[in-house]
């Protein structure tokens, strides 16, 4: 019975992780149309993919968008988590809904609404437009991580700082922020990963300024191309590193807790 359980659990995990593993394997495989048995080992697809200037342009765009998104959404997410932690006020439910709902909206709808609205504002087709949309999507994740960390804090700590003569900003600077530091770095990593992988809204609003996943999307509309496995593996490794770093920072066992 127990063995059967392990087999079943492994099968579910295999299904979930098969595409990630396959993309990694195929990226080093010489066949254009991979099958079993595998062809020979090659780094050819990487060479080809990364000799294209538009790939580097897309990587630069992605890094800029992910970097700015991470900073802005972590700032908003932290401020929101702190507000929820410390204050009760009228319409707080609506406030929290605003903080947590965006990821439940289908991205295609988000993309259409963003395209229409940013066009009205005249910033559709720019990297700024993508950043604006990605901050909307990423902030809830930053908020959740910071809120989780704040819930581990004794509220008396902040009050103690006030009693010792600290101003509110002083207590924020010397008590709250240091306590939340790992959550803030974690949120920076996670929001960067959210932005780095998002392609639907970015596709709607990007115009000619493609990010990496938007470029993949456009290549995919053409043909089967193993270069996608090479680019995709780099994308996987990047976002998995960010997510694992985020998890490590927020979930590791700590001596000071």
């Amino acid at each position: 019975m127990r063995a059967l359980g392990w087999v079943y659990l492994s099968a579910v995990f295999l299904f979930i992780f098969a595409p990630i593993a396959a993309s990694f394997i195929f990226s080093f495989n010489s066949d254009r149309f991979p099958t079993l048995p595998l062809g020979s080992f090659t780094t050819d697809w990487y060479m080809r993919a990364f000799s294209r200037p538009e790939v580097w342009q897309a990587i630069a765009n992605s890094l800029i968008v992910a970097g700015v998104t991470a900073v802005v959404s972590t700032f908003i997410g932290f401020a929101t988590a702190y507000t929820d932690f410390r204050y009760g006020f009228r319409f707080k439910t609506a406030y929290l809904a605003l903080a947590l709902l965006p990821p439940t909206l289908p991205l295609v709808i988000m993309g259409l609404a963003m395209l229409a609205w940013l066009s009205q504002l005249g910033i559709s087709g720019t990297l700024t437009g993508i950043v604006i949309a990605h901050v909307v999507l990423a902030t809830p994740f930053a908020m959740a991580i910071c809120r989780l960390r704040l819930s581990q804090m004794d509220p008396a700590l902040e009050a103690a700082a006030w009693n010792l003569g600290s101003s509110q900003w002083g207590a924020m600077r010397h008590v709250i922020l240091p306590f939340c530091a790992p959550a803030i770095v974690s949120a920076l990593c996670l929001t960067a990963a959210v932005s780095f992988d998002e392609f639907i809204v970015a596709w709607f609003v990007s115009g000619l300024n493609r990010t990496v996943p938007v470029m993949i999307l456009e290549i995919l509309q053409g043909n089967v191309d193993p270069q996608i496995n090479a680019i995709g593996t780099v994308v996987f490794v990047t976002s998995m590193t960010l997510v694992v770093a985020a998890q490590f920072l927020i979930f590791r066992k700590r001596q000071d807790d």
Partner: peptide, 20 residues
């Protein structure tokens, strides 16, 4: 948090007529 697009592409290859 990993690109669903690339994962879908990997399935395209895995499930292809002459795939693994």
């Amino acid at each position: 948090f990993t690109s669903f697009l690339v994962r879908a592409y990997a399935w395209q290859v895995i499930l292809a007529e002459s795939g693994p």
